[in-house]
């Protein structure tokens, strides 16, 4: 295939993925808007004023970046894991496997779909937040780059989950028992400086903490973590998961007999 043909194949997979979640927007885009609106009402409006300031910002402003990031993480992961597992379950992954599409084009197509849904949900949640607070933008480049890196990273994680999944239960186990706890303990609602030293050190083992803090830096200019460490961790994880995903595709794990 020529580079032009490979790009056409990539664009086809990406378009197919975007249309897939756009067709079912009530299931894919609307829920994070409603969930986040509830977070803003309960934690921001009702409980927030009693908490007071967090790192020099009103509580509502402090939690906005984390909630946007939570939505991006959850939905970029969910999009790829459900789409890839669905394509295995209905066997239409074979449409791509019989065609001369290189593995990296298949992977980037699915990841592109995950990033598109993650960013769509992130923008939707940001729009909802405007009803509750005004947005501060401290560093747009950090904000944008970190949200894209995070969406790529969790799309890759979702892809690997989708490759290994053998039932619909398998695509909900990781999000429920791993992703959600790590996200909630990743500093969405609090600064890790509030924790005892031991738990601060434990929190540093959570990669999501680095992403949420860097993203918050983009909004508010504050972070519990050095920015360089956040980028290094995100890029390292992306490289690792990308390499592993390509290996799985090359071996045909779960998709070729």
């Amino acid at each position: 295939m020529t580079p032009q043909q490979k790009f056409t194949a990539f664009r086809t997979i990406l378009t197919k993925e975007v249309l897939r979640f756009a067709r079912i927007w009530i299931q894919t885009v609307l829920p994070p808007m409603i969930t986040t609106a509830l977070y803003f009402i309960v934690f921001g409006n009702l409980i927030g004023p009693r908490i007071g300031e967090m790192d020099g910002f009103v509580y509502m402003d402090f939690i906005v970046p984390g909630l946007i990031m939570m939505s991006v993480i959850t939905h970029s992961y969910a999009n790829v894991v459900s789409s890839f597992y669905g394509s295995k379950f209905q066997r239409h992954i074979e449409e791509m496997l019989v065609a001369p599409v290189p593995n990296y084009v298949i992977l980037t197509g699915f990841i592109g779909g995950g990033v598109a849904r993650g960013l769509t949900c992130g923008i939707a949640v940001t729009l909802v937040s405007l009803f509750f607070t005004s947005l501060n933008v401290y560093n747009l480049w950090v904000m944008f780059s970190m949200i894209v890196l995070t969406a790529i990273l969790f799309s890759l994680a979702g892809f690997i989950n989708g490759v290994y999944a053998k039932s619909f239960d398998d695509i909900s186990i990781i999000p429920t028992f791993v992703l959600t706890p790590l996200t909630y303990l990743g500093g969405i609602f609090y600064s890790i400086n509030m924790l005892p030293e031991f738990w601060q050190n434990v929190s540093l083992a959570n990669p999501i903490l680095y992403m949420i803090n860097a993203f918050r830096y983009g909004f508010l200019g504050i972070s519990d973590i050095r920015l360089a460490a956040s980028y290094a961790i995100s890029i390292a994880f992306i490289a690792l998961l990308y390499g592993f995903s390509i290996l799985l595709l090359r071996r045909g794990y779960g998709i070729r007999t």
Binding site: M1, Q4, A9, R11, E95, M96, A99, P100, V101
Partner: peptide, 11 residues
């Protein structure tokens, strides 16, 4: 049409 796309045929 998607199947054609996987073979690099423009949209």
């Amino acid at each position: 049409a998607n199947q054609a796309g996987y073979y690099g045929i423009p949209r």
